[in-house]
Simulated assay, not measured.
Amino acid sequence: MTLSMTLGMTARQRLEHELSSLDQAAIAVSGGVDSLTLATAAQRILGDRVSMHHATSPAVPAEATARTRALAAFQGWSLDVFDAGEFDDPDYRANPVNRCFFCKTNLYGAVARRTDRLILSGTNLDDLGEYRPGLDAASRHNVRHPFVEAGIDKRMVRALAAELGLGALSELASAPCLSSRIETGIRIEPRVLAMVHEAEQRVIATLRPRTARCRVRAGRIVIELDEDALQSLDDGARASLEAAIVAIASAAGLQAPVSFAPYRNGSTFIRRPA
């Protein structure tokens, strides 16, 4: 699409232009607002010429799968739920700096084995400003990113979600896969991911924060919270939550002290020098 064509077009019109140029497509749907919004828009443009593909694994919270299934049933999607097999990949399990490359390689490879349609992702413009080795895997599988092609960032995605009638999903908090909570170099273990998810759910139920992450670092567990939630955490609540999370971690075989800190995006990611 040329610059002159985009002048005066809304984000929705630009996205619809990109989607309507496709003969058929397969969308990798994670269960987050980006992919759910893309799937909703694509279904309305392409109808039965688009299929949705959702991968389950210990790194994907059950509520993401439930959310995807519910929206698929409501909107009448063709939904394929499968295991992409990344937990059988020793490179992924080793949790190197480019772990996401191996995750997405397994994901897109699995989708490609299940359909010959062009694969689309919910990547938006904001994602391009971060280190995202998964984009390298996407490139190798000729995956296209309609939001990027239409010049749409995260704020626009949320506005589109609301415009498309997705209601509360438009405000769905960002929730990267559970493996993103594990510090680079610490092996990815399903039992630890289950612990991370349970700890986060306990924190959310107790504090109702805007953001909560349970980070597993070398020899310790750090609960990261948005500033307002962190400031509201008095000594009693802090001690109670700390004890609860220590118990959750211990049940998963992880003995480590628990501390609280301000939320930092990607703080367990350690980009090591070459």
Rank of each mutant, 00 (worst) to 15 (best):
H54A: 13
A229C: 12
G31S: 07
A237Y: 03
A11K: 11
Q13D: 08
G185F: 13
R69E: 05
G31Y: 06
I223Q: 00
P262D: 13
L164D: 06
A261S: 13
L36E: 02
A11S: 15
A229L: 09
S232W: 09
D226M: 07
R144N: 00
E200S: 04
R155E: 14
L38E: 14
A59P: 15
L207S: 03
A70Q: 14
T206H: 00
S21D: 06
P133A: 10
R117V: 04
L166G: 11
I45R: 07
D126P: 15
G185R: 08
L3E: 12
D91S: 09
A205C: 02
A70C: 11
A137S: 05
I119V: 10
T6L: 15
T68Y: 01
E200I: 04
C177Q: 05
T65D: 06
G185H: 08
P58G: 04
A64N: 08
A72V: 06
M156A: 12
R99W: 13
L38R: 08
L107A: 03
L38I: 11
K154V: 02
Q43G: 09
H54Q: 07
S121G: 10
P209V: 11
H54C: 08
F74E: 09
A162V: 01
W77G: 08
R238N: 14
D80P: 01
R272F: 12
R69F: 08
N95D: 05
V157E: 04
R272W: 13
R238K: 09
S250N: 11
V157M: 02
I223C: 09
A59N: 02
A168E: 14
L193A: 11
R67H: 15
A256T: 05
H17P: 06
G8A: 08
S4P: 04
T211I: 11
G151C: 05
L118C: 05
E224T: 06
A212R: 01
H17I: 04
L22N: 04
V143E: 00
G109L: 10
S78Y: 01
D48K: 02
H17V: 12
A244C: 14
G219C: 10
C214V: 12
C100A: 14
G85W: 03
A42R: 04
R67K: 14
V50W: 09
H145A: 14
R114F: 03
S250L: 12
L125T: 02
P58C: 08
L160V: 11
L207I: 10
N265E: 15
S57R: 01
V60F: 00
A62I: 07
Q255C: 06
R113P: 03
A239R: 15
